[in-house]
Every structure is written in C-alpha cells, then in structure tokens.
Design a binder for these strands. Structure first.
Lengths: 218, 218
DNA sequence: AAGTAGATTTACCCGTCGGTAGGTTTCCTG
DNA sequence: CAGGAAACCTACCGACGGGTAAATCTACTT
C-alpha cells in the first residue's frame, strides 16, 4: 500500500485555522486515494505534516473528519456553480451554464469529487446525509428553472407537478454522469454537458410535444 | 451495527458445491448490506451457516471471496440480458430489449447490483478488473448494434469509427443510471430504459441528422 | 471393521489502526 | 518577566477482525 508523500515542510506553531485547512486538504487527498476505510489517520496526519492528536483535537473522530471534508467540498462546489450562472438568462441557458460549471468543477477537482460523491455514496450512514442536503439544494434550484420553462411553454398545471421529480432525476443524472466521468476522463466536459442537456431538455420538452422514441411493439 | 440474521438451518455434511453456493449467497448479502470493508468474515460465515475456516478452504481470502461474488453476479446478469434479446429484431429494438432486460435484472436483484457495481467500483484494484471484463463484453455487443444501424442509415465510413466510443458511453450511461436507480427505486425500470433510449438513440441518430440542442451563445 | 478422504469445528494468533493520556514547547498578555 | 493558554508531540492502549493450526467427525470404500 503506497502512501502519499510530499508532506509539507514542518512549520511550527501555526494558528488553528491554517492547521485545519492543511488537515482537510490532506484528508481529501488520502480519502480519495485510498477510500474511507483503507485511509488511516496516521497517513493523513503524516501528509498534513501534523501529529495525530491534533486532528482529534481540531476535527474530531475519523467520521467527523470525513464529514467535514464532504461539507467543505460540497460548499465549494455549490459556490462554483452559482458563480457560473447568469440569473437573467433564459431557463435553458441557465441550466446549460450550471451544467458547464458543474462539470468544469468536477473536472478540475477529481479528487474532491471522488471523496465527495463516490466515497460518500458507497459508505452509508451519516456521510450520505451531507450529500442529501446538497442534492436537495441543487434540486430546488433546477426545479425552479423547469417550472419557469414549463409554464412559459404552456404546459398544463397538472403536469407541472411532475417537475420536481424530473429535477431530481436531472440532478441525479448529472451526479451519475460526473461519477462515470471519473472512469472516462478523455471525454470533454462540454460534451457531457451537451449530452445531459439533450437527455433532459429534449426529454422534458418532448414530453410536452410528444416527440420521443418509443418501441414499435413491446 | 445490526447483523444480518436468518441463517439457514444447519444441515451437516453437505457437498462442496452446495456450501460454496451458500457462502456466495451470504457473502453477496453481507457485502451489499455493509460494504466491502465493514463486512466481516465472521458475519458472512454466520449468515452462511458455516464456520469461518470453511470459507478460507473453499473460496480463499476475503478479496478472493469478493471477486468470486462479482464474477458470479456478472455472469448471471449477462445471461439475463442475452436471454431477453431477440437476435432477429431491428438494431434499435434489440437495444431496447437489452436495456429492458438489464434494468429488469437490476431491479430484481438490487443486492447483486450493489455488490456487483457500486461496491466493486468504489473499491479499486483487483475488484474492478472483473467489472472491466464484463463491461468489455457488453460494449462489443452494443457496438455491433450501433454499426449495423449506422451503416444501414448511411452514415459515412469515417464516422463509424466513433461508434465504439459511443458504445462505451452508452454502456457507462446504463451502469450509472442503474446505480442512480438504487437511490430512486420509485422510478419504473421501463422509464429508465426509455430515457436512455432517447438519450443515446436520438443523440446517435441526430448526430447524423444534426438535430440536437446547442447553446445559443458561449 | 478398518482405513481414508473430505467436511467441519473450536480456539487461537497477531497485525493494524482508531483513539487517548499526559507531558512539552512556544507565544501572547499584563 | 511571570504565567497561562494554546499549539504540539511521543508513546501507548485496546479492540476489532483477517487468517490459521490442529484436531474431530462422518461417510464412503475395500
């Protein structure tokens, strides 16, 4: 089991904030490299250039540390997305911008995404809670876009109720695509965004217009 | 950590084949319930109704056992899919049938899928190898369909080269969708298959006809 | 009945790793 | 220059869990 090296040069007596950041940085790297269980607190402390008890003093148990990683990276991601969307654009363009920002973030921060999504998903329990929270915020946002677009295009009020389900599906599809992307880095992020746009936007629009692929027989 | 109960009634002196099957059954359940690392050999042996050394005698180490689980479930799945496709149908219908069979299998065997895909993916190393093999076979199959369809529709020979990439993308999309499905069981499998069909088939067909969503600006 | 091979168990070893006790150093404040 | 608070470390513990040694038991063969 090869340990991550490149520990930071030991500087002494740094303020708590800085140490916490170093520890979180190290934790994200080690967790994403080895997975939650296989990652050892010893290695994290080593990579962070700090002794183990510091981690427990500042960030708590291993679970706490992992949760803290997720929280931080999730926040970073949501900010990156929000920063990439222009609020005055048309709904489809906003969705497009959001997707591009999303895939751009994931592409630049594969480590973060690994720890944030793939690891947190495969471990159950308290970890996924952090994800659920973030996903919830994302879904609300997307749902607002869908509703704006649907009512504008004249979708009947009844069908509008389904938007939240579709928003959830879209967000889930985005997550899954990003996850899939980890194993297929050669595909450009723009392409992913386009695919997703076609899937959900056509699937959504065509759901009104009725132009979709259907099996001839069953 | 609640342990799985419902151990099979101890029958003594069974032939090796039978015991191996019991052990694999138990292993799939426990691995999918707790995840690879958290699952303990003790619990697996308990659920299987067999003592621990038997597992080591028959299936080898924990890693070996896990790999054996993946291999078995992967084979089962491929057989299920192959059984659902009629070789004389049109390409799009074959794809449709395959997708339906695939989602049908995953839907009926969530446990298997969990251990087969989600767990194996999040753990790295030797485990994913088994998956890679299966995925390879699936991609070949899909690629054949795409090529048949593309040349039939008059796609130029040049573009045909991209089919293998698209086949890989399609298979990956299917995997990811199934993975996403684990967290959204309320969506019917047929719907998933339709979505995927629309994504890839329209994306594929429209890639020839040029009718896709594209951003106005950017 | 004896012998043999495979099925099956109990009881144990020991490495790894999360977590902590308790002390030491540095810096800031009055 | 006290003196205290906060940063920081070495060294250790204890449990969990993978893996095994060495017997024992049953069933079939000759």
């Amino acid at each position: 089991m090869d340990a991550i090296d490149a520990r930071q040069g030991r500087v002494k007596r740094l303020p708590r904030e800085v140490r916490e950041r170093q520890i979180l940085d190290a934790a994200v790297r080690v967790f994403s490299a080895h997975g939650y269980h296989t990652a050892s607190m010893d290695e994290i402390s080593d990579v962070a250039g700090v002794s183990k008890p510091m981690i427990y003093a500042y960030l708590g148990s291993k679970e706490d540390l992992f949760a803290a990683c997720i929280r931080r990276e999730a926040t970073l991601m949501m900010e990156a997305i929000a920063g990439g969307v222009q609020g005055d654009s048309a709904p489809d363009m906003q969705l497009w911008q959001g997707l591009r920002a999303f895939f751009s973030f994931v592409g630049a921060q594969r480590d973060s995404w690994r720890v944030l999504h793939r690891q947190a998903t495969s471990q159950g329990g308290p970890f996924s809670d952090e994800l659920v929270a973030m996903r919830g915020r994302a879904i609300e946002l997307v749902d607002a876009l869908l509703v704006r677009s649907a009512t504008k295009q004249g979708m009947d009020e009844q069908a509008t109720k389904g938007t939240s389900a579709m928003a959830a599906a879209l967000v889930g599809a985005g997550e899954s695509m990003a996850d899939w992307w980890v194993d297929h880095p050669e595909v450009p992020g723009r392409t992913l965004a386009t695919w997703l746009m076609n899937l959900v936007w056509m699937g959504f629009g065509d759901l009104v217009e009725g132009k979709v692929w259907t099996p001839n027989e069953d």
